[in-house]
Design a protein around this nucleic acid. Sequence first.
RNA 1: GGGUGCAUAGCUCAGCGGUAGAGCACUGCUCUUACAAAGCAGGGGUCGUUGGUUCGAACCCAACUGCGCCCACCA
Length: 953
Amino acid sequence: MRLSTPEALRIFRAWENTSESWNRRDFFAPGGTTNRGEPEADTKLFKMTADPHPPALPAAYDPQTSEPDIYDSWLRQGVFTADAGSDKLMFSIVIPPPNVTGSLHLGHTFEHTMMDALARRRRMQGYEALWLPGMDHAGIATQNVVERHLAQGGLSRHDLGREKFVERTWQWKQEYGGKILDQMRRFGVGVDWSRERFTMDEGLSQAVLTIFKNLYDDGLIYRAERIINWCPRCQTALSDAEVDHSDDDGELVSIRYGQGESSIVVATTRAETMLGDTAVAVHPDDQRYRHLVGTVVELPLTDRSIPVIADAHVDPQFGTGAVKVTPAHDPNDFAIGQRHGLAMPTIMDERGVITVPGPFEGLDRFEARPAIVAALREQGRIVAEKRPYVHAVGHCSRCNTTVEPRLSLQWFVKVAPLAAAAGVAVRDGRVGIHPPEMAGRYFDWIDNLHDWCISRQLWWGHRIPVWYGPDGQVRCVGPGEQPPTEPGWRQDEDVLDTWFSSALWPFSTLGWPQKTVDLQRFYPTSVLVTGYDILFFWVVRMMLFGLYAMGRTQRQADGSVTVDADASPTAVPFQQVVLHGLVRDQYGKKMSKSGGNAVDPLAWIGTYGSDALRFTLARGANPGADAPISEEWVKGSRNFCNKLFNATRFALSHDARVPAVGALADRGRLSLPQRWILQRLDVCVAEVNAALDAYEFARAANAAYHFVWDELCDWYVELAKQELAGPDHQADDARLVLGQVFDVMLRLLHPLLPFVTEQLWMTLTGQPTVVTAQWPTCQGAADQTGAENSMTHLQNLVTQVRRFRSDQGLRDRQRVPARLVGLEQTDLAAYEHQVRALTWLAVPTGQDAAEDFTSTASVAVSIGTHPVTVELDLAGTVDVAAERARIAKDLAAARTEQQQVQAKLGNSEFLAKAPSQVVEKIRARAAAAQADIDRLQAQHHALGGPEQERSTA
RNA sequence: GGGUGCAUAGCUCAGCGGUAGAGCACUGCUCUUACAAAGCAGGGGUCGUUGGUUCGAACCCAACUGCGCCCACCA
């Protein structure tokens, strides 16, 4: 196959962009070319020197070509490298570290869009802005991937052994782990690559050791035999947060324990656990079983007898009111077992295989279940069955295997002493949550805490720094300490939960436990942007550890340690939390690989550009909101970029100049359209700022979108064409106004559309980069000249004439001679030329034009209180039917309006109780409606319209 | 089981007490030199149902119906 040149180029670029070219770390090597203020000369696309003639823009908007070059230039200029020594105000964001195994998906681009916008805006506002990137080692996920990889070669991790396996995983990380970072570069994230971190790198591992040791010494980490969630496939413990519950079909069987008079019936969905039963429990007040408490019953299929005990935890209303107790395989039963000192035999191994000697030994738990039910049925022990029986079942969030509660020896973090302070920090406003409604979910967790199981039976991760001696000694080895070397000592085999190191991310990445300048200047981080789906996994835990490590602790009288709830504001890991939703498809369905509707962001970036994808995501990005997205909408955003590109190109081609500061302050001199667009620009700036202050990216994007497209392009640019062709002073003003509007808008849009605004702004201003340009602020000038009102009049007039022309089937090109009667009485008197240009109306020609001109059709419009009639010469070709239809329609609308308004004005209570401004507004509407009705009726009459068109009211 | 949210145009959503809006889709016309990745004009909704509060309700309150999400050791 032969490729055409452009096609080949495109493919080459796509390939080039994804990997090789981005691995040139010399762009951001420490001490290299990244120092701010000393941009390296760039000969490729952009001139860094003051060039009086900046390079012309390409003829077409072409993100595929320009975006990678622009990103290179940013890295070369070092604009994202934060200076901790700066005396500016500080702003910092740490990236939610993506899994090292991952590739970029739309969820990442979604939150990166928001973080980049926030950081870029702050940088333009004069802050020293740090956006710190990095990756998470993702314990279970990565180990699973590498194990799958090994399995293809017929190997298991045990064939390699621990050391080799970990080595292999590091290798894998080096080879594939940076993929997502390469993809982020193509997206154009403005992160500080010189500060990139990894949860398993040297510094962060020190942080993990340090906090483990501190917590251990403070008695906040302990090891205990507890019921934990166990995944028989991953063969590791899981925290509560790593278990997903779903309502599954099961089977509830009732089994008779014991014989005859002294028998008792219990119900269960997990019949196989009966092999581990050590009691039957009933409620102490339950009269039905009172006589049995203290006796023993025979446990079927075994040679054991178990006691009947009384425990207040049993619900007498449920089932038979009697519960079988399996302390080693059920959390409730474990608690009962502890209270009654019951034996806790484990009946399954780590794979979920029955270990009790006998006929069921070696059976998987799901094979054992029907086998045991069958055996019980044979003995006549099954007294009732209910199937299907829907009940909540826990699944491993990593592999979806049914979780098995299992008694085992694990490490835990004592959460209560940490959590109180974490609750207070949000309640007293030191940490803001957006949207505020979601703080409720945060408190749900904080107020209902369970201790956090942090040990994992994996090999990939931070190994627990505890050593066990030959005589039962336990020693926690802190950072810098030597592990015991005497014979017989061995280190704990387990590693820490991935979220343990993630919980340190806001300060470990800044150098903690060292007292670094970064830590001092950039902590607490300003904003955390993350999904509401990991509020519990991550946000809560960062709060716990952040306040513990960076705040103060108190030793209680009993020797226990708690985190001081009144820790200073500088202890919190972040000051604001912005929670975003999920990316959904165009039908509102959650995007997921399994749902088959997942999209590779790079594909869209390749076709439409990073800016287009960002803008589409931004238009769905409000706190707590899910963002629907589809290719059509990305295309729409690309079209917007193209619009902006072409409009700027228009301005440049007419020598638009950015005015000196204050040059346009005296607006009295300017034309109506000029005053209007500057006024609207100011409103847009205010709206965008207000929206971004509230993290409402969607509102900001929409405000800018509508200003650029509906106001700037559709109206001002069209009007400016007339001004540019007009008298010199007017043309000069137009060039300055265009310069001003585009300068401000490009800066204002930069956080949301970084690439196209950079390209256009550099060309417009000749400056090296918009990244460090000054952020626009609202001038706050009220519309003192009534420009908005007059422009509304102009727009109405123009639209009415255009509509008439459209209804009459007139081509735009067809200049129609016309008189604008009465215009001189209105505020548009000076703008007849502009009105004619926008409506393609010609001045009547001929010797005595005004007198000879014969009108054959007219359009009547109300300009404020003044009637204006546009009289056109259609040379007798007026489509009367079309015209009458149009007028009839307007008349009907005007009458409806009049009816509604009169209903209000006829209501004495309305007049009495409604605010006077509202009443005045309604009166004005009534007057306007009446004027419309009069005018339209006259026109309708003139066209020979029948009288029955009268209102039926 | 406990929370919590949502129902507005064909689709996805904004509006949250005083004339129902946007994008896409749809219809007609136009290659008018910034832009056809466009322009101009247009059609389309008793704002889930039923009550209530109010001069006035898409908006506030209650109930109902239908979806969704979060939490949960219901054997």
